[in-house]
């Protein structure tokens, strides 16, 4: 049993290092992108081995799925398969600086990890889990004990979309380069499954691995699938439309709850235990909706037009 687990972990680690090297140094950008997508899958398997199924879910949804689609689409937009901007060792003398630097960083990180207190904060979380309103410790930390971090994370996503929209209009054409009758059919068949899986993950979040980020990522990936299959997105960039409100819904809801709690109880984000469960559920739903739309908006690579033109 033991040697099996060791073989498995060793193989995973070797594959991860090899894929990381390939993603950085393979000749040809396509090879790098494919290596990076497989890197995400291996990383998810490693998170599972490290007993962190929540991160494995997020890694599978964002790292292997949505990022892969984003990178492949970006690659297809490059005019020539040029390798401009690739990482090269310009001069062997650079190694004299970077190798010792990397060695010292790895040593310091290793020492710090070695000296972390053994049980960590898990004991405290387990002790106060009863007052958090949920049964899943990860959700309790994300949306109750450390809500402020989650607020900032959603803020980062929103700022990212604002930055991308301000770069310019979304590039057209949005339709596939190679129209195929199979793609729309696949999109129509798979999209309900994406919606179902996202709803399921969101609901699971309160008592098992899952939650707003994973559900939002799966839902956003479903939207990207529909665009890839040739559907016209609903999301428009008009100033008075509902979409800007929906994109910022997660951040607005979290801020509103935080300020309301500050007014009621005097502390930012301090939920009364009786209200914690419904508040967390409401925050999770609004955050998941917002994250799904934000991921989709990132994929459009620019500000969508006020009205999508009719397909010809």
């Amino acid at each position: 049993m033991d040697w099996l687990a060791h073989t498995f972990d060793g193989l995973l680690g070797l594959a991860l290092l090899w894929l990381a090297w390939q993603a950085m140094h393979a000749p040809g950008l396509f090879r790098s992108v494919v290596s990076y997508m497989v890197f995400g899958l291996v990383m998810a398997l490693i998170w599972v081995r490290l007993e962190a199924p929540d991160i494995a879910l997020a890694e599978a949804a964002i790292g292997a799925g949505a990022t892969g689609a984003l990178l492949l689409s970006a690659l297809a937009r490059l005019k020539d398969g040029s390798d401009a901007g690739r990482l090269h060792w310009r001069h062997p003398a650079e190694l004299v600086f970077w190798l010792p630097f990397a060695a010292v960083t790895a040593l310091v990180l290793g020492l710090t990890a070695w000296q972390l207190p053994a049980p960590g904060l898990g004991v405290d979380v387990a002790r106060t889990l009863g007052q958090s309103g949920v049964d899943n410790p990860v959700t309790a930390v994300l949306l109750n004990f450390r809500s402020f971090d989650t607020l900032l994370e959603i803020g980062v996503l929103l700022v990212g979309v604002v930055a991308i929209w301000s770069l310019g209009p979304a590039p057209s054409p949005i339709v596939p380069k190679m129209p195929s009758p199979a793609l729309p059919a696949l999109g129509r068949a798979l999209f309900p499954v994406f919606v179902l899986a996202a709803t399921y993950l969101l609901w699971r979040g309160s008592h098992a691995p899952g939650g707003a980020f994973q559900a939002g990522a799966v839902m956003g990936a479903g939207g990207i699938l529909m665009v890839l299959a040739g559907a016209r997105p609903w999301l428009t960039g008009e100033e008075q439309g509902p979409w800007r409100w929906l994109l910022s819904l997660g951040l607005v809801a979290m801020l509103a709850v935080a300020v309301a709690m500050a007014a009621l109880a005097g502390t930012f984000f301090a939920y009364p235990p009786a209200l914690a469960a419904p508040l967390i559920l409401a925050l999770e739903i609004s955050a998941a909706l917002s994250i799904a739309l934000l991921m989709f908006a990132v994929y459009l690579c620019g500000r969508p037009p006020d009205h999508w033109e009719a397909e010809d």
């Binding site: 396509f30 997508m37 899958l41 998810a44 599972v48 199924p53 494995a56 879910l57 599978a60 949804a61 292997a64 799925g65 949505a66 892969g68 689609a69 492949l72 689409s73 690659l75 297809a76 596939p176 380069k177 190679m178 195929s180 793609l183 696949l186 999109g187 798979l190 499954v193 994406f194 899986a197 399921y200 993950l201 699971r204 098992a208 691995p209 899952g210 994973q214 799966v218 990936a221 990207i224 699938l225 890839l228 299959a229 040739g230």
Partner: peptide, 23 residues
Amino acid sequence: DVALVFALLSALAVVTFVSRAWS
């Protein structure tokens, strides 16, 4: 659940490849 998400999102990569990158 992780396996479910894997299975769903591997379809996304192939669809991107076929509809965008291949041609």
